[in-house]
Design a binder for these strands. Sequence first.
DNA 1: CCTCCACTCTC
DNA 2: CCGTTTAGTGGAGG
Length: 359
Amino acid sequence: MDRLILHVDLDSFYASVEELRNEEIRGKPVVICVYSGRSEDSGAVSTANYKARELGIKAGIPIKRAKRLAKDRDVVFLPVDMQYYREVSGRIMEILEEESDTIQQVSVDEAYLDITGKASSWEEAQAIAGRIKDKIKEQEGITCSVGVSFNKFMAKMASEHQKPDGLTVVKPQEAKEFLADMPVAKLHGIGKKTADTLNDMGIETASDLANSSLVNLEEKLGKNKSLKLYERAQGIDDSPVEPTTAQQISRIGTLKENSGETEVILPKLKELIGDMGGKLEQKKALFRTVTLIAIDTQLKTHTRSDTVQQTDDIVKVEEIIKQLLEEFLAENSDIVLRRVGVRLSNLTYRKDQKTLSEF
DNA sequence: CCTCCACTCTC
DNA sequence: CCGTTTAGTGGAGG
């Protein structure tokens, strides 16, 4: 018995939401930015709507470059307003819940739905996908792209196939052809590094990957990753749609100026820790591991961590981070930091959603 | 089997 | 002269 899985992707979500609440900017190129605060226009683009993408502006590029690409055109630049996006997203997720057995939200603008119990044919599944698109358009005024398929990976690949405002169905018997000539870099889970490695092995497309030797892959990519990619290239993915509780919470920020001194860096870390405290409380989470994240001026990431007795005491985090920072700086007197962060992991939940595997 | 850490990926 | 967040993997070491 096959499953019926949907992947719903809200189209350039942040930009769409901004266009919706401000008619002045509707129809214009809109760019949503994360300003780092260290200088005017330092930071990166988070989302660009399709009008802006026509100009070559896209997620990840520096704001400065985006502004150069915009030249003297009428392009709207706005800062991210996550609180508001989360609010809109929450209402949309309610719509998705109505239409599915199980939902797995992967970010504010993306979710997997298992609708196996709600539809008994591909026609019905497609109808549900269409209804979801209509409801979101009607209630919230934004478009989305939906992939309908028989597992999460294929649903994701299907939703990517046509956007914005797409609806793509890929049935089991169509999967092979759908993937066949796709460059490996297009497969979800394969980034630049892995694509380069595969290309070096003479593997260019999904079918190359599907027909390659697993043993060969394992030499270059390791056992687990190889098997996963090898299966995906064949359209195989048995992972369930399941709501997840966070395994870790982290905050990263950019220092006002590069520094290698505790007195400069620690206040920033305390600021991040303070922000994390609220999140921890809201989630009713306890942590065991505290990690200092240090990104140097070469953009190389270093981490130092410490695992302690389970607690939710945020003051403990400050103490541990101070310790880790001093150790790190002492060991690396030559390194100058650009960004720093804190991560809490080894989480368990007090309201007992996930705990009790121990003892 | 656990911990630490670098690395890869995603949005 | 470039952000933030999360999950996963593998190797080294204990």
